[in-house]
Simulated scan of single mutants.
Amino acid sequence: MKYFLMNSKPQSNFNLQTQHYTSRCKDDSSSTSSNAGDPVECGSLPGLWPTGNRVNFRFHPDTEAIMNRQFATEMKAFYYYLSMAGYFGRVDVALPGCESFFKQMHHEEHGHALRFFDYIKMRGGLVNLCSIEAPMNQDWKCPLNAFKVALELELEVAEKLVETNNIAEKYKDLNASDFIVTGFMEDQMKSVNDIGRLVTVLSGVGDQALGRFMFDKDLLDHYVMPEFNILKKKK
């Protein structure tokens, strides 16, 4: 049996280009690129690990950086809501509706942060953790004060989402833009609206004992999912 070596190379129908971006938060190593069809050295010795080659498709360093900032913004809201839940759960405050609501919001913001965490990794980026900004004053005093701060938080998150999407659109990153607009913006608008309405109600009833009690009960009955209702968990 005879074997023949063909000198001609098959023509590829397309050229696949992969880009490797390095994080600007660490030492700026030079980026590398590879083209499909390059010869592969079979059986060669293992290379360095980590390789430093992060395969991605048009994930610009600016988009990576601002998505890391959005991750930090979601974590800030997560931290604030946990503080609020802790305050209203105190034995000398004892407002189970507010405690349950803010624990639910804390869980929601944590989920949002993890979605950005996973998305950055999926796109071949680097997740860079920053310090979480704690509330300067954790004495939330009354529901109205806490819900006013919550509204400011939701508006801040919404504004940062818009800024993140603007960067994605600047670099024509369709997937990143769709991730933000489809995955977050409508729910964020609903959160702004819901908390804005609660601030309006609290502004009308004041902080009288009966009004505070009725608001807290209504919050627990109509705004808190069963798995976050602390009274049901105690049964």
Rank of each mutant, 00 (worst) to 15 (best):
A85P: 00
G211W: 04
K76R: 11
N56D: 07
D118C: 02
N15Y: 04
A36M: 07
D62T: 04
Q138W: 00
A146N: 01
V201K: 11
C130S: 15
V91G: 02
E152R: 07
C98L: 05
E41V: 12
F147L: 14
D118N: 11
K26N: 08
V157I: 11
G43I: 09
F14Y: 05
L198A: 03
S33P: 01
N165Q: 14
L114W: 08
P96F: 01
M75W: 08
T182N: 11
H60K: 06
K232I: 09
L151C: 05
G204D: 15
A209M: 08
L5V: 13
R24E: 15
V181R: 12
N7D: 13
L155P: 00
S177R: 03
M105I: 02
L82Q: 13
I120N: 00
E152P: 00
N137S: 10
S34E: 10
R58L: 10
N128W: 09
S30G: 06
C25T: 14
E109A: 11
C98N: 14
S191Q: 09
T200D: 15
L161F: 07
S131Y: 09
R212M: 13
N35L: 09
E64F: 03
D27L: 11
A65Y: 10
L48G: 13
L174T: 12
Y119E: 01
T51H: 04
T51W: 00
K103H: 15
E109N: 10
S203M: 07
I66G: 03
D207T: 15
Y21V: 04
M225K: 14
S203D: 14
K172Y: 11
G204L: 15
Y223L: 05
Q188P: 01
P143K: 10
G86I: 00
R115E: 04
Y3R: 06
N7Y: 08
L198H: 10
R24F: 11
M6T: 13
L174R: 09
F213C: 09
D27Q: 09
S33F: 10
S83I: 07
A65V: 11
F101W: 10
N13A: 08
K172L: 10
A36N: 05
G89C: 05
K2I: 14
A77C: 10
A150I: 05
K103G: 15
L210S: 07
D216R: 02
S33W: 07
L48A: 11
F147D: 04
K26M: 07
